[in-house]
Every structure is written in structure tokens, then in C-alpha cells.
Design a protein around this nucleic acid. Sequence first.
DNA 1: TAGCTGACGCAAA
DNA 2: ATTTGCGCCAGCT
Length: 99
Amino acid sequence: MKKQADNFSKRARSQFSDFAKKVVTIVAKIPKGKTMTYGQVATKAGNPRAARAVGTLMSRNYNPKIPCHRVVRADGSVGNYNRGGAERKAEMLFEEGVR
DNA sequence: TAGCTGACGCAAA
DNA sequence: ATTTGCGCCAGCT
């Protein structure tokens, strides 16, 4: 119910959305061999509904500190990757011990 | 400024 | 169990 408006104000004061910063921090905190869903990242970022935005931020604004391959969908699927290299991402996770 | 797209999530059929 | 539709937020054109 319009609680997102609060975050909106904060976003306006910075050139880069505070959302993206949080996403970077959170994803960067993902331990090796583990995976986090976009929904979890979005939730920790401040908006549990912003799962899409998280993916958008990654695809459009790629960050070197963000092991995007460790971010998967809520269903457990690997989800997508840059340019559709989802299979590559899946293998990477598999070798880390993620199934 | 306004609109469209998109690395998602969840509910319903 | 699987597939389809709708809703959400943020970024880019």
C-alpha cells in the first residue's frame, strides 16, 4: 500500500538508485557455493516485489563485484544470464556444489 | 516527459 | 505436475 513511496524519495536524491547499491552489496555477500533468489535479494534490497528490478539492474548495469551466476530464481531454476548463457551459469553453479 | 522492455514472482487454470 | 496470465519495480529509449 504505497509504502514504496518512502524509498522513492531516497532514490531521487542519488544519481544511482540506492536499490542498485544494495543489490550489489547483497549479491557480493553471497558465499561461494551458494545461491540466492532474486526475490531474496530484492527483499534485502528493500523491496520484496522488486525481483524484476534486480534482474534488470544486473542485465543493464553489470557490476564486477556481482557474481550474478550465483543468483537464481525462486523456483530453483538458474534463471537467465547475460545474452542467454544460462547453461553456462548452471554449470558454474554445479561445480560450486549448487544443484 | 512518457512509454516499453526485461536476467522475476506468484496465482490461477 | 505443468502451463498461462497478471503484477511488480527499475532502467533505458
